[in-house]
Amino acid sequence: MMLSERRQSLKKKIRKSIPGWLFILPMTVGLCLFTLYPIVQSIMYSFHEYDLISVYTFVGVRNYINIFRDPAVHKALVNTLLFAVCNIPLMLVLTYLLALLLNIPLKGIKVFRVLYYLPCVIPAIAGGVLWSAIMKYGQEAPGIFNQIRVALGLSQSKYFLSGDFEAIRAILVMNIWGIGGGTVIWLAAFKNIPEQIYEAARIDGAGKITQLFRITLPLSGPMLLYNLITLMIATIQFNGTIAFAPYTGAGNNNATLMLGVKIYIDAFNRLKIGYAAAMSWMMMIVTAIITFLMFRVNRWMNNDG
C-alpha cells in the first residue's frame, strides 16, 4: 500500500472514531482525574514521608518496612482476620438463604425485596448512628437490644464498647443490616436459571428440596466466586466502625481496630499520609493475591469437576 493511501486510511479511521471518542471523553477524563491520578499519587506518597502541611521527603521503602515493625498493624491484622473468618461465611450463607426466600413467587414479594435492600442505600454514617442507638449501653437509657436483654433477665451487653471479641461480634450483627446487597446478586443468579429445567424436573417428579439441591444450588454456583471475592474485599477494607466506635473506630483497647480503620487513623488523625499510602498498597497486594488464589482454586475445581 502506498504511503499516501495509508495516511488517507488512517485519517478516515480517526474521523470515523471521533464521535466514539467524544462519547467516552467525559468518562475517560473522570477516570483519569479521580481514579488514575489518585492511584499514581498514592504510589508516590507511599515512598515519601508526608504530613499534608510541611514535610514531603523521599524515604524509599522505609514506610513499607515500618509496616512489619508496627505492633498496631499486628493487632489490626488479627482483628481483620478474625472478622473475615466470621463475616464471610456468615454473610454468604445468610444472603443465600434470604435470596431463596425472596425468590418464592408470593404476592407482594417485591415489597420485601425492596425492604431488605433499603439499608444498602442508607449512608454508612446514618446506619452507624442508628446502630449506636440500638446497641446503646447504659443504666438509665439503654438501647432496644439491651432493653430486651434486661427484660429476659440477662445483664446488659457493651457491644462495640467492649474491649474484647464482644466488640467484633457486635459488628458482625450490625453487618447483617447490609445483607440486601449480596442477596440481590443471588437473586439475579436465580433468574438466570432457565425455567424449563425446573419444569422438566417437576415432570420427572422432583420435589422442592430436590430442585433446590439439584438445580438451584449447582446452577447458581458460579455466582459464588463473585460474591466471595467482593465480600472478601469489603471485609478486608472494612472501616465502618469509624462512624460510631470510640477512638476513631479503633474501639476500647483497640478491640475494633481493623486494617481499614488503621489506614484512616494514620492518614487523617496522625497525618502520616505516606505510611498510610504504603499500608493501602500492601492491603491491595494481599487482596490481589487472595483473589488470584480464589480464581485458581475455582478453575481447579471446575476442571476437576
Binding site: Y37, Q41, M44, I53, S54, Y56
Partner: peptide
C-alpha cells in the same frame, strides 16, 4: 497520563 500524574502530584507544602 502516568507521567503527568507523577510530575504533578508533588503536594503543596509549607
Amino acid at each position: 497520563c502516568f507521567a503527568l500524574s507523577f510530575t504533578a502530584c508533588a503536594p503543596k507544602i509549607q
